[in-house]
Computed example of a mutant assay.
Amino acid sequence: MATPYRCPNCRTNKSRFNIIKQVAESVKLDPKTGSVMQTYENGNLDAIHLPYRGPEYKIQCGVCGLIEDERMFAKFGESSI
């Protein structure tokens, strides 16, 4: 996060952003009710349950509200230097 950002949508915002920390929780749901039947830790997932592999952070533009991966805002920030 030590890189300049620029919004790829509104293209003018370089300073107002919301950093969204993503915390994944692995669960098994009841297919009929949707209630949580079991919560998994990263070390004890079922054989068919993949661990979360998405980005740790998402960024939201504080001007237009666009939410994207951090690398998208960083890539546009590089081009404005």
Rank of each mutant, 00 (worst) to 15 (best):
I19K: 14
V23N: 14
E25N: 08
E41V: 07
P4M: 06
V27D: 13
R6P: 02
R16I: 05
K32M: 11
C10F: 01
Q38N: 08
N18Y: 15
S26Q: 06
Q60S: 15
S35C: 10
C64M: 11
K14T: 04
L66V: 11
V63F: 06
M72S: 15
E41N: 13
G65E: 14
P51E: 08
N9F: 00
E25V: 15
P51K: 05
R11F: 01
A24Y: 04
K14H: 03
T3A: 09
D69V: 06
Y52M: 04
K75Q: 03
P55I: 01
G43I: 00
E70K: 06
R71M: 13
G54I: 01
M37Y: 04
N42I: 12
A74S: 05
C61H: 01
K58Q: 04
V23Y: 07
E78A: 08
Y40D: 15
L66R: 03
E70V: 03
K28W: 13
S80V: 09
G43A: 09
Y57P: 07
F73G: 01
R6N: 05
G34R: 13
M37C: 02
G77W: 14
P8M: 09
D30V: 11
M1N: 08
N44L: 02
R11C: 03
G34Q: 11
E56K: 07
C7G: 14
I59E: 00
K28M: 08
I81Q: 12
S79R: 13
R53Y: 04
P4E: 11
D69Q: 06
K75D: 10
C64L: 07
Q38A: 12
P4C: 05
G43P: 08
I59W: 14
N13R: 10
G62F: 07
E56T: 11
I59M: 14
C7L: 12
Q60N: 03
I59D: 02
I48T: 03
A74L: 12
Y52S: 04
R71E: 12
P8F: 01
K14P: 02
A47T: 00
T33V: 09
S80L: 01
G54W: 00
V23C: 08
C10V: 13
Y5P: 01
S79L: 03
L50E: 11
I20Q: 07
S15K: 14
M1W: 05
E41Q: 14
Y5I: 05
A47N: 04
V27M: 14
M37L: 15
Y57M: 09
E25C: 05
M37E: 15
R71S: 05
M72N: 11
C10Y: 03
S26N: 09
T12I: 13
S79A: 06
A47S: 00
R6E: 00
G62T: 08
D30F: 04
K58R: 02
M1C: 04
G65C: 13
M1I: 06
N9E: 07
L45I: 02
Y57V: 04
C7I: 12
S15R: 13
C7A: 12
T12K: 06
R16H: 05
K32A: 08
R11L: 07
A74T: 15
K58F: 15
Q38Y: 12
S15A: 05
P31V: 10
C64D: 06
S79D: 03
S80W: 00
C10N: 11
Q60I: 10
V23D: 11
V63H: 04
E68K: 10
P4K: 07
S80R: 06
